[in-house]
Design a binder for these strands. Structure first.
Lengths: 247, 247
DNA sequence: CCCTGCCTTTGATCCAGGTCAACCCGGTTG
DNA sequence: CAACCGGGTTGACCTGGATCAAAGGCAGGG
């Protein structure tokens, strides 16, 4: 093998999977790692998976062995009870981790479904634990990610427990907006990847209620909606809905 | 110092704080640790804190440095938004951990309040991370605990998003019952440590609705309630409310 | 012992959001 | 092109739980 062939091979692999070369490394697990630490993480994250819209990344009941970092695309997670009722527990986008629910019992407790064609990096969990025993920064960052998920869930509980329909939708839109912004997209104009029904499930509302709330926001000049295309016209107005309403 | 003095001193310390001697060690962080590992955990868990009913263990906004294992007593955690609305995010009992919300930003995001006189073990988080880099079992168990919290939160989201008032209360009571049972108490008869208002906040209901649901359950012979004293008479009936109801 | 204050229960009324139903719109198929 | 189909919107009506109000325990303090 010539030197060039080696270089080419390395270059190929880097393009193929490396965290060290991923433009999400500031959003994702590698945050704060040194060059050589990053390389060791690269070794774990060797398998990618492509999913088409509608595909399951994993299902409730399946054995757990990896967590997944979203490289591109958009997901929802949901839980189901026997009688068929289900609840969307979250929407995940680029750079976010999926699968943390599986750690506790080594069995996934929810479904993760791609809402658009997506790509994820699979990170074998036991190996991640091994590496994070060696790299303090990685360990600490991983703990922060899990804790952030807990805090996020508390926010959703607050939303579901105390807010009225329009407040919920406003909170939802502001959250999406802020996350798009953090990824370099417009915070004001975006396409929803999920149906009214899925938004409703997440927010504890029926799809008709979600639709009506959208229409109301439009009437009030807070935003322009057409199907799944949303443009926020008055962020402050939306924000005021959240804080100010109620006694 | 005589040998006896040394022994006595050790015995004193063991009684005072050691995980190795704690009758909760099968419920709490030490699960699965070897004798010598346990000893090293003991060294971290040196500070105890006693709280009286109503005391805050920590408050939202305070800096985070330790997580807490409940040694005895009963807690609630809640989050608040500017306009004064608050949401109880959980009730914690013996052997459960508090403070995981603080890891993500190094600032606590919720309040933890004792609902009865209680005692907790403070575990400095950075030291816990250090030790769990050395003790694989401890690391893994800690990850499971965090993950379990996420799964629990998803359950609450399901409850808040899809269940009707009586289903919520049934789910709540069954959950409490099961947790008392796991601690060696009667699963059928217990004292609620929280007010109707706090139950309502947790379940996304008003206190009057909670009270009415209790009365209804009593009429239907599912349980006997008097103020905070609850006796479950028909567990299967309560369980059926959960699964069967609705289309 | 009574008083005070908090918690709980219960009744009467109201309303936000659920339910049911019709229609619309854009994309796809035969 | 028509027929179809899976969202999305909109209207009319209904209901579960919120709200408002009153009264009944129970615990703690003087």
């Amino acid at each position: 093998m010539t030197m060039n062939a080696v270089t080419a091979r390395l270059a190929f692999e880097v393009v193929k999977t490396a965290c060290s070369n991923c433009n999400l490394r500031e959003l994702c697990l590698p945050i704060g790692l040194e060059r050589d630490e990053l390389k060791r993480l690269d070794e774990l994250v060797s398998t990618r998976r492509r999913l088409k819209r509608g595909d399951h990344l994993y299902r409730a009941g399946q054995g757990f062995e990896s967590i997944y970092a979203i490289r591109s695309g958009f997901f929802k997670t949901d839980v189901m009870i026997e009688d068929g009722r289900d609840q969307v527990t979250g929407f995940q986008m680029t750079g976010e981790l999926l699968g943390l629910d599986g750690i506790s019992s080594e069995i996934h407790s929810c479904n993760a479904i791609a809402l658009e064609d997506s790509e994820v990096c699979a990170i074998p969990f036991l190996q991640l634990e091994g590496l994070s025993r060696q790299i303090h920064t990685l360990q600490h960052h991983f703990h922060k990610v899990m804790s952030r998920e807990i805090v996020r869930d508390h926010g959703v509980m607050m939303l579901l427990g105390t807010m009225r329909a329009e407040e919920r939708l406003a909170a939802f839109l502001l959250n999406l907006s802020q996350r798009f912004k953090a990824r370099g997209y417009s915070p004001a104009e975006f396409n929803l990847r999920m149906s009214r029904d899925e938004i409703g499930s997440y927010l504890g509302l029926k799809l008709e209620t979600v639709s009506r709330a959208f229409s109301r926001f439009q009437e009030e000049g807070l935003l322009a909606v057409h199907q799944r295309k949303v443009r926020i016209l008055n962020t402050a107005g939306l924000r005021k809905l959240l804080t100010h309403q109620r006694a």
